[in-house]
Amino acid sequence: MIGDWIDIGPLSAIPSRGARTVPVAGGEEIAIFRTGDDAVYALVNRCPHKQGPLSQGIVHGHAVACPLHNWRINLASGEAIGDDKGCVPTIPAKVDAGRVLISRLHAVTSALAA
């Protein structure tokens, strides 16, 4: 069934203050983050600095620290925090009835743009 949102699994499958990944055929991998207060964000899994896999960073507040060089990325905007400048594409995401949903349109667009 084709809707506006893609169900990618239960929230419980993502560790609190952690992330899981969703590879996109023909596109860039998406990282799905879950914060300590159960907010969910989806970003392209690539740091704007040196392409580090953001999904492997330490999640704190609503930010993630890239595992390669500790750039901190705002999960909501995808923008680097502090003196660093750069931005990673975000994909609208939400939780409904315990399921994590990401925007189909944005996921397709970001895949095709890659």
């Binding site: 084709i2 499958a13 560790p15 899981r20 969703v22 996109v24 996921a107 397709v108």
Partner: peptide
């Protein structure tokens, strides 16, 4: 195991074809 496995996989072209 979740540290090593993907949550799922997304095939946008399949989805478009299905539409």
């Amino acid at each position: 195991a979740e540290q090593h496995q993907h949550l799922g996989e997304f095939r946008p072209l399949d989805a478009i074809a299905a539409e």
